[in-house]
Protein backbone atom coordinates (compact mmCIF):
# COMPACT_ATOMS: atom_id res chain seq x y z
CA UNK A 1 0.00 0.00 0.00
CA UNK A 2 1.35 3.38 -0.89
CA UNK A 3 0.75 6.14 1.59
CA UNK A 4 0.52 9.50 -0.06
CA UNK A 5 1.80 12.39 1.96
CA UNK A 6 0.11 15.70 1.56
CA UNK A 7 2.09 18.15 -0.52
CA UNK A 8 3.95 20.40 1.90
CA UNK A 9 2.69 23.95 2.19
CA UNK A 10 6.15 25.50 2.39
CA UNK A 11 7.56 25.33 -1.12
CA UNK A 12 11.11 24.65 0.14
CA UNK A 13 10.12 21.62 2.22
CA UNK A 14 10.94 18.31 0.60
CA UNK A 15 8.14 15.78 0.50
CA UNK A 16 8.74 13.08 3.10
CA UNK A 17 9.44 9.46 2.15
CA UNK A 18 10.52 10.39 -1.37
CA UNK A 19 13.84 10.88 -3.12
CA UNK A 20 14.67 14.29 -4.56
CA UNK A 21 17.49 15.63 -6.68
CA UNK A 22 19.53 18.81 -6.64
CA UNK A 23 22.03 20.01 -9.21
CA UNK A 24 24.10 23.10 -9.75
CA UNK A 25 26.96 24.74 -7.90
CA UNK A 26 24.87 25.44 -4.80
CA UNK A 27 23.60 21.88 -4.36
CA UNK A 28 25.65 21.19 -1.25
CA UNK A 29 24.37 24.37 0.39
CA UNK A 30 20.84 23.26 -0.50
CA UNK A 31 21.54 19.85 1.07
CA UNK A 32 22.73 21.49 4.28
CA UNK A 33 19.72 23.78 4.28
CA UNK A 34 17.52 20.70 4.13
CA UNK A 35 19.63 18.99 6.79
CA UNK A 36 18.87 21.81 9.21
CA UNK A 37 15.17 21.33 8.58
CA UNK A 38 15.18 17.58 9.29
CA UNK A 39 15.28 16.45 12.90
CA UNK A 40 17.19 13.24 13.51
CA UNK A 41 20.33 11.46 12.30
CA UNK A 42 21.67 12.45 8.91
CA UNK A 43 23.62 10.32 6.48
CA UNK A 44 25.86 11.75 3.76
CA UNK A 45 26.98 9.12 1.28
CA UNK A 46 30.12 10.49 -0.34
CA UNK A 47 32.18 8.40 -2.80
CA UNK A 48 35.67 7.88 -1.42
CA UNK A 49 37.35 9.66 -4.34
CA UNK A 50 35.41 12.92 -3.94
CA UNK A 51 37.77 15.53 -2.42
CA UNK A 52 35.05 17.92 -1.24
CA UNK A 53 34.32 17.26 2.43
CA UNK A 54 31.82 18.99 4.68
CA UNK A 55 33.84 21.20 7.01
CA UNK A 56 32.67 20.66 10.55
CA UNK A 57 33.20 24.21 11.81
CA UNK A 58 31.33 25.71 8.88
CA UNK A 59 28.25 23.51 9.07
CA UNK A 60 24.94 24.97 10.27
CA UNK A 61 24.21 24.62 13.98
CA UNK A 62 23.19 21.17 15.12
CA UNK A 63 24.10 19.42 11.87
CA UNK A 64 27.66 18.32 12.61
CA UNK A 65 26.74 16.17 15.61
CA UNK A 66 24.03 14.32 13.73
CA UNK A 67 25.96 13.75 10.53
CA UNK A 68 27.32 10.34 9.50
CA UNK A 69 29.60 10.26 6.48
CA UNK A 70 29.68 7.00 4.53
CA UNK A 71 32.42 6.77 1.92
CA UNK A 72 31.84 3.74 -0.31
CA UNK A 73 34.01 2.82 -3.24
CA UNK A 74 32.20 2.25 -6.50
CA UNK A 75 28.74 2.97 -7.77
CA UNK A 76 27.14 -0.33 -6.72
CA UNK A 77 28.23 0.05 -3.12
CA UNK A 78 27.07 3.66 -3.13
CA UNK A 79 23.59 2.75 -4.30
CA UNK A 80 23.45 -0.11 -1.82
CA UNK A 81 24.42 2.23 1.04
CA UNK A 82 21.82 4.80 -0.02
CA UNK A 83 19.11 2.18 -0.24
CA UNK A 84 20.04 0.66 3.11
CA UNK A 85 20.06 4.09 4.77
CA UNK A 86 16.72 5.00 3.21
CA UNK A 87 15.18 1.78 4.48
CA UNK A 88 16.34 2.53 8.02
CA UNK A 89 13.58 4.28 9.91
CA UNK A 90 15.45 6.55 12.37
CA UNK A 91 17.40 8.36 9.64
CA UNK A 92 15.86 11.72 8.83
CA UNK A 93 17.64 12.64 5.63
CA UNK A 94 19.97 10.76 3.31
CA UNK A 95 22.22 12.90 1.12
CA UNK A 96 24.12 11.11 -1.63
CA UNK A 97 26.42 12.14 -4.46
CA UNK A 98 26.22 9.54 -7.23
CA UNK A 99 28.77 9.82 -10.04
CA UNK A 100 26.72 8.47 -12.88
CA UNK A 101 23.13 9.16 -13.93
CA UNK A 102 20.78 6.75 -12.18
CA UNK A 103 18.98 4.20 -14.27
CA UNK A 104 15.20 4.19 -14.00
CA UNK A 105 15.40 0.91 -12.10
CA UNK A 106 17.85 2.29 -9.57
CA UNK A 107 15.83 5.49 -9.14
CA UNK A 108 12.64 3.52 -8.65
CA UNK A 109 14.34 1.22 -6.13
CA UNK A 110 15.43 4.22 -4.11
CA UNK A 111 11.88 5.59 -4.13
CA UNK A 112 10.55 2.26 -2.84
CA UNK A 113 13.24 2.16 -0.16
CA UNK A 114 12.36 5.71 0.92
CA UNK A 115 8.70 4.76 1.16
CA UNK A 116 9.56 1.65 3.19
CA UNK A 117 11.68 3.57 5.67
CA UNK A 118 9.67 6.83 5.63
CA UNK A 119 12.96 8.62 5.01
CA UNK A 120 13.69 11.55 2.73
CA UNK A 121 16.48 11.22 0.21
CA UNK A 122 18.37 13.94 -1.63
CA UNK A 123 20.71 13.10 -4.49
CA UNK A 124 23.29 15.71 -5.45
CA UNK A 125 23.77 15.10 -9.13
CA UNK A 126 25.89 16.49 -11.94
CA UNK A 127 24.11 18.90 -14.25
CA UNK A 128 21.78 17.02 -16.55
CA UNK A 129 22.32 13.65 -14.87
CA UNK A 130 18.85 13.43 -13.39
CA UNK A 131 16.66 10.36 -13.15
CA UNK A 132 13.04 10.19 -14.24
CA UNK A 133 12.03 8.56 -11.00
CA UNK A 134 12.83 11.60 -8.88
CA UNK A 135 10.09 13.41 -7.03
CA UNK A 136 11.48 16.92 -7.49
CA UNK A 137 14.58 18.31 -9.11
CA UNK A 138 16.15 21.54 -7.97
CA UNK A 139 18.70 23.65 -9.71
CA UNK A 140 20.66 25.50 -7.05
CA UNK A 141 23.01 28.35 -7.78
CA UNK A 142 24.56 30.83 -5.41
CA UNK A 143 23.75 34.39 -6.45
CA UNK A 144 25.71 37.58 -6.06
CA UNK A 145 24.05 40.16 -3.86
CA UNK A 146 24.30 43.90 -3.70
CA UNK A 147 24.18 44.11 0.09
CA UNK A 148 27.27 43.12 2.01
CA UNK A 149 25.69 40.87 4.62
CA UNK A 150 23.35 38.83 2.46
CA UNK A 151 24.13 35.50 0.92
CA UNK A 152 21.66 34.93 -1.83
CA UNK A 153 20.71 31.59 -3.29
CA UNK A 154 18.62 31.04 -6.36
CA UNK A 155 16.87 27.73 -6.11
CA UNK A 156 14.68 26.80 -9.02
CA UNK A 157 12.39 23.83 -8.96
CA UNK A 158 12.63 22.37 -12.45
CA UNK A 159 10.61 19.25 -12.02
CA UNK A 160 7.86 18.41 -9.60
CA UNK A 161 5.70 15.33 -9.81
CA UNK A 162 3.11 16.67 -7.43
CA UNK A 163 2.86 20.43 -7.77
CA UNK A 164 4.02 23.46 -9.60
CA UNK A 165 7.51 24.44 -10.42
CA UNK A 166 9.03 27.81 -9.54
CA UNK A 167 12.09 29.86 -8.80
CA UNK A 168 12.93 31.23 -5.38
CA UNK A 169 15.63 33.67 -4.48
CA UNK A 170 16.36 33.69 -0.81
CA UNK A 171 18.86 34.85 1.69
CA UNK A 172 20.25 32.07 3.86
CA UNK A 173 23.49 32.60 5.73
CA UNK A 174 24.36 28.94 6.09
CA UNK A 175 24.18 28.90 9.88
CA UNK A 176 20.65 29.11 11.20
CA UNK A 177 17.37 27.59 10.01
CA UNK A 178 15.98 31.08 9.32
CA UNK A 179 15.65 32.21 5.72
CA UNK A 180 14.41 35.37 4.12
CA UNK A 181 12.67 35.19 0.82
CA UNK A 182 13.79 37.88 -1.53
CA UNK A 183 10.92 39.00 -3.71
CA UNK A 184 11.89 39.71 -7.21
CA UNK A 185 9.72 41.04 -9.93
CA UNK A 186 9.73 38.61 -12.79
CA UNK A 187 7.75 37.26 -15.65
CA UNK A 188 6.13 33.88 -15.56
CA UNK A 189 8.15 31.42 -17.63
CA UNK A 190 6.11 28.33 -17.04
CA UNK A 191 2.54 27.49 -18.00
CA UNK A 192 0.11 27.97 -15.15
CA UNK A 193 -0.90 25.02 -13.03
CA UNK A 194 0.21 22.01 -15.02
CA UNK A 195 3.08 20.08 -13.45
CA UNK A 196 5.67 18.67 -15.72
Amino acid sequence: MLLRDATPSDPLTLLRARVHEAEGRGRRAFALFQAVRHQGPLVWVLPSHVPELPMLRGLPEGVGERLHVIRPEGEVDLLWCVEEALRSAPIALVIAEPDKPLSLTAGRRLQLAAEAGRTTGLLLIRAGAGSNATETRWNCEPAASAAADSTLHRWSLNKNKRGTIGIWTLNWNGASPAVHMVSEARQRHEPQGSPR
Binding site: S48, L56, G64, E84, P90
Partner: peptide
Protein backbone atom coordinates in the same frame (compact mmCIF):
# COMPACT_ATOMS: atom_id res chain seq x y z
CA UNK B 1 16.41 3.48 22.58
CA UNK B 2 14.75 1.92 19.59
CA UNK B 3 16.12 4.65 17.33
CA UNK B 4 19.62 4.18 18.70
CA UNK B 5 19.34 0.44 18.13
CA UNK B 6 18.12 0.90 14.57
CA UNK B 7 20.90 3.37 13.83
CA UNK B 8 23.50 0.97 15.26
CA UNK B 9 22.02 -1.80 13.08
CA UNK B 10 22.35 0.38 10.00
CA UNK B 11 25.97 1.26 10.80
CA UNK B 12 26.71 -2.45 11.42
CA UNK B 13 25.24 -3.62 8.16
CA UNK B 14 26.88 -0.86 6.12
CA UNK B 15 30.19 -1.40 7.94
CA UNK B 16 30.11 -5.14 7.29
CA UNK B 17 29.75 -4.55 3.58
CA UNK B 18 32.05 -1.62 2.84
CA UNK B 19 34.27 -1.73 5.94
CA UNK B 20 33.94 -0.01 9.28
CA UNK B 21 36.68 2.46 8.37
CA UNK B 22 34.39 3.92 5.73
CA UNK B 23 31.47 4.66 8.04
CA UNK B 24 32.61 7.91 9.56
CA UNK B 25 31.61 10.69 11.86
CA UNK B 26 32.91 14.26 12.10
CA UNK B 27 34.65 15.09 15.35
CA UNK B 28 36.03 18.48 16.33
Amino acid sequence: TRHDDALADLLSSVGNRIGFDRVLRLLP
